[in-house]
Design a protein around this nucleic acid. Structure first.
Lengths: 194, 194
DNA sequence: ATTGTTCTTGAATGGTCGTTCATGTATTTT
DNA sequence: AAAATACATGAACGACCATTCAAGAACAAT
């Protein structure tokens, strides 16, 4: 009986995610979202109860499920090793240097902008960091088994360090997107593993 | 002839800096600043032409001149070496774990929140990163001369990595202020130098 | 064709934003 | 004592904020 929806909620969520990604939670107004999606306030609020913040939290989850796996790529494969870590870092550098990728990582931005005042957002960020650390640890263990890193390497600890390094890479890259600088960071991070 | 000021502009600027530090630029309203300083809008705007944003930029500079040197401590001394780098990192961890220090670093927060849309703010951040890198490079060179790090170490590149590491430390610490995690990051960053 | 249900629309809400300005006040010089 | 000057006050500004809601519209079932 009901009248059918005229828009795709997933498409709306995607547009919202992109806005939050490039401008941050506070900088995006509902009017911005209305313009970006073509969906009027009333419909937005009925499709996403909880309004702007709910849309933001759903954006974080969507980012985790859709964008992150694409960036992680082979690093999440069971056989991942040093090359896959390297590939991930190279991808980060490439993104930071490209005009579209300068927005960095939505979850890093959220850690800084919202983690202190929004526990739910912080939880999503923590989940992301844990996932990243898991990948890195696993890849380092594979690498150790294959003799691609020094035998004395603390895989779990080094994974934590690598996670911090890529967060730092994004902070540096956001303020100072210079290829030589970013490459030096990545190169030296890897020199430490050998 | 004129009526004298009833407030200390430096004290006002300090209060503003603290607010921006803990909540971010967008999250702080002028009304917040009025409440925090006791100075009414009219006086605020006449003492700080340019309003909120000027106050923010001045806060960044004040932070650079007053807070940063205190955190850097001996690391800026000519004779600084590994121990001073370590001291700096330990201080960061201590701060991130303390209730007052969870706000992280104003300049890191600014890199994420404002660098993309505010060139002047980004320039201050870049200056800070350059200063940090200069300290680190100098300390590593001292350390190399004294045999405290491996001879093959690329001081300039490792300094860049250490800068990124402490930015990353602050991102991780903001979302997940766990001592064991932060210590592991620092320990492994130093293991890479030996 | 009518009814029931959900959706769309866009104006309106009350609140807050950053900023300005007219008025009154305190102080120093004349 | 009076004039001149800079400051303090806080109400008022228009703009924008997130959100709500009354009205009309589109479809499915009858």
């Amino acid at each position: 009986m009901p009248r059918p929806r005229e828009f795709e909620p997933d498409a709306v969520l995607n547009a919202a995610m992109l806005r939050f990604w490039e401008r941050g939670y506070r900088a995006v107004s509902v009017e911005d979202l209305v313009k970006a999606t073509g969906v009027k306030p009333g419909s937005l609020y009925s499709a996403f109860p909880g309004g702007k913040r709910a849309l933001f939290l759903k954006s974080l989850e969507r980012y985790s499920k859709l964008v992150v796996p694409q960036k992680l790529g082979e690093l999440e494969a069971p056989g991942a090793s040093v090359d896959e870590i390297r590939g991930y870092f190279d991808g980060l550098v490439r993104d930071l240097l490209s005009p579209e990728g300068r927005q960095g990582c939505l979850l890093v931005n959220t850690a800084i902008e919202n983690a202190a005042e929004d526990d739910e957002a912080a939880a999503v960020v923590r989940g992301h960091l844990a996932r990243l650390e898991r990948c890195m640890t696993h890849a380092l263990e594979n690498a150790a088994r294959r003799g691609r890193v020094r035998a004395s390497l603390d895989c779990s600890g080094s994974a934590k360090l690598l996670v911090a390094t890529c967060q730092g890479l994004m902070v540096v890259g956001k303020a100072n997107p210079e290829e030589a600088l970013l490459r030096a960071i990545v190169d030296n991070a890897f020199a430490a593993l050998a």
